[in-house]
Design a protein around this nucleic acid. Structure first.
Lengths: 201, 201
DNA sequence: GTCTATATTTGGATAGAC
DNA sequence: GTCTATCCAAATATAGAC
């Protein structure tokens, strides 16, 4: 029988910490070189290892992309979950959209990884993708809280926010020419899909 | 003095034809392998040449991307220019948007090349990019013909169409879940930016 | 867990013969 | 204009010593 006394597994902790360190370094690299240019060599160099040693932490480069994808999704979900509470569902809807948009434009590379499937062989694993569905549910719920239930409304809603993010990132990264249209666009949306009084507080 | 008699330069024609052939093959390749996976070797194979021989037609791989980029822009511009005439400017606006959207979704790889700057070292040359500005002018003019002049209106307009295209391509390529929202979205837009009677026929 | 060594593949590009 | 022959560089990944 193997002794199971130690509560903390220092070994595992160390391993996890190094994994984290590698991922952070990967983020730095892709932000300067571009998402597709991530190379094991450079990554190893950045954390003070040989490229080969990285395989003790990730079985492949795609696994690194996958972990980064999961990172991003978790961050976004956190951002949407920790909204300051508000009694006004429309206010919540607006804030949520604002947060989403800020998230999209504050790191174009992360945006590319999450929303533009552009890396040759990479597809996120089911586990890494799961939070994305929660994110969508957040929007669905926020709309529902405003009494907006149509499925067309949800699709339109995502298209509006996605469109502002896409235009901002591809035409004026770092700027706010499209971002600042958000409130106006939401007004437009709310005229077409008028909220009802069916709030649920 | 060099004789200049022959009106047609058969040599140049042949060269241009082969260039065209190479570009067509490149399109086929990227549609199956992905935009970033275009390789000179495969491309040569596809047209029955060694990779090295391609350099007689294009000075680099980026030059091929650039020509493909120019291709796409010209196609789009053609599509928008050859709209059936209509006396109703709003009708024209709608048709134009429809064409644009169809163009975006009928070939996701072309969409990626044109609108998502995603290939590591590639930036289109000024010449290849020029038609893109004409495309934007088309939208500007179509809106103006409806009496819609605000610059915010133009930015919102491009965000709406871009958003529908982005969602359609990334969430349901080949489908029409977002595309079919177009008319409704345009209605929404026209409520916020009401056309005036200042048509110019 | 990290290293050296190496396998393997791939890919862009040039030189020079024909 | 196309080929052969190469070069060079970069990249992913594995094996096995320490």
């Amino acid at each position: 029988m193997s002794g199971k006394l130690p509560v903390r597994d220092r070994r595992a902790e160390r391993h996890a910490a190094t994994r984290r360190e590698i991922l952070d370094a990967a983020w730095e690299l892709v932000r300067t070189d571009g998402l597709a240019s991530l190379a094991m060599r450079n990554l190893g160099q950045r954390v003070g290892m040989r490229a080969q040693s990285l395989y003790a932490y990730f079985p492949s480069k795609h696994a690194i992309y996958d972990a980064m994808f999961a990172d991003s999704n978790r961050q976004l979900l956190d951002r949407l979950t920790n909204l300051p509470p508000s009694d006004d569902p429309i206010d919540r809807l607006r804030r949520q959209a604002r947060r989403f948009l800020d998230f999209c434009i504050e790191d174009p590379v992360r945006y590319q990884l999450l929303f533009q499937r552009t890396i040759p062989g990479f597809e996120p694993s089911a586990e890494s993708y799961a939070p994305a569905l929660d994110v969508l549910d957040h929007s669905r719920q926020a709309l529902r809280d405003c009494g907006i239930d149509e499925s067309r409304a949800l699709d339109t809603w995502t298209a509006l926010t996605a469109g502002l993010a896409a235009q901002q990132n591809s035409n004026e990264p770092g700027g706010d020419r499209w971002v600042r249209l958000l409130d106006e666009v939401i007004d437009m949306f709310l005229v077409r899909y008028p909220p009802t009084e069916s709030r649920r507080p």
